[in-house]
Nucleic acid binder design. Structure first.
Lengths: 169, 169
DNA sequence: ACAGTGAGTTTGTTTTCAAAACCTGTCAAA
DNA sequence: TTTGACAGGTTTTGAAAACAAACTCACTGT
């Protein structure tokens, strides 16, 4: 499957992955949320090669995740800023950060701490249900076809009547 | 930067990305949360080539995100199940799904709907502050060095005293 | 005149990826 | 007893992407 073919899949994960499903893109976005905005700064902080950085920024601008805005003229220089669409990726980045903090941190502990200015506390991000506000457990969630569902190929496994083997556990 | 070098970065995003920062891996995990467990099922649903699927599953098992458990003998057949570490990726996947639902859905609407069994409602996932329970806005969050912080290279941009240009906006 | 900066592009090499075909062990039907 | 099917992979080989280093361009400041 080609990269670009993902955009047309009837799956929100596939479509999102077609935009951010690349290790450099995720690291660039991390830096965007840390207020990094300039080509040279991204390049130095990430250790990414310049051609790759240029191509990733170009793609993020094309997908309206970042906007290229001039911050000086003669010579014109640009910086890359998150759009609202880009800022909406905050839960994705925070979920990734939190998983890394819990499961991949070194002996010294987590590298960054997050403080919520609204309440003043150092916090962890928690994913909750918009209906009742309780934290989400995957086993407490059922999935149904939505209006944008396409082929049965994308249905959850238990909706496909597949002959089960006898010897299963 | 090599793929493997990411694991040793003092950044939780980089470390997480070293595990899941690959488009196929994210799509495989999506299917895991939809109760897909077998090699052939992943292969058919994703349209992924067999060698890539085998290598991704191998890596996820190595990283303790999936466990390879036999479900029959003679011949021994395995299925791939999420571990607790893997289930903890649920917020990451849900954040990705939600962003795709909001920003990348086709005209027909979102492909899947999620129902929370605890409260019965169809819901959206929301990322909130563990301290006060309010939804997170990136502009309301400040970042500080944690015990695992390494070099100043990984600090937020505004903590690095860099000479600012005169002509900035 | 010369060095420096910001934002890239070019070039040649190395790595990784992907498609198709192939392999292995077991069972079941012809 | 061959044949075929199924599950779960591995091998092989050509294409795509990433890498490092150098180069370009349009300025600015000394």
């Amino acid at each position: 499957m080609r990269w670009s073919a993902l955009e047309n899949e009837a799956c929100s994960v596939a479509r999102t992955v077609s935009v951010i499903g690349d290790r450099w893109t995720l690291l660039i976005l991390r830096d965007c949320f840390l207020r990094v905005r300039r080509f040279e700064d991204f390049q130095e902080r990430l250790g990414i090669t310049r051609p790759i950085l240029a191509s990733r920024l170009r793609k993020l601008v094309k997908d309206f995740v970042l906007a290229k805005v001039p911050y000086q003229e003669r010579p014109t220089r640009y910086e890359y800023r998150l759009t609202q669409k880009g800022r909406d990726l905050y839960p994705v980045i925070m979920a990734i950060v939190h998983w890394g903090d819990i499961h991949m941190a070194g002996k010294k502990g987590r590298p960054l701490l997050h403080q919520h200015l609204a309440c003043g506390k150092t916090f962890d991000p928690v994913m909750v249900c918009s209906g009742c506000g309780e934290p989400l457990d995957p086993r407490q969630v059922h999935v149904h076809r939505g209006p944008g569902a396409a082929s049965p190929r994308n249905l959850p496994a238990d909706e496909k009547k597949r002959p089960r083997l006898v010897h299963q556990r």
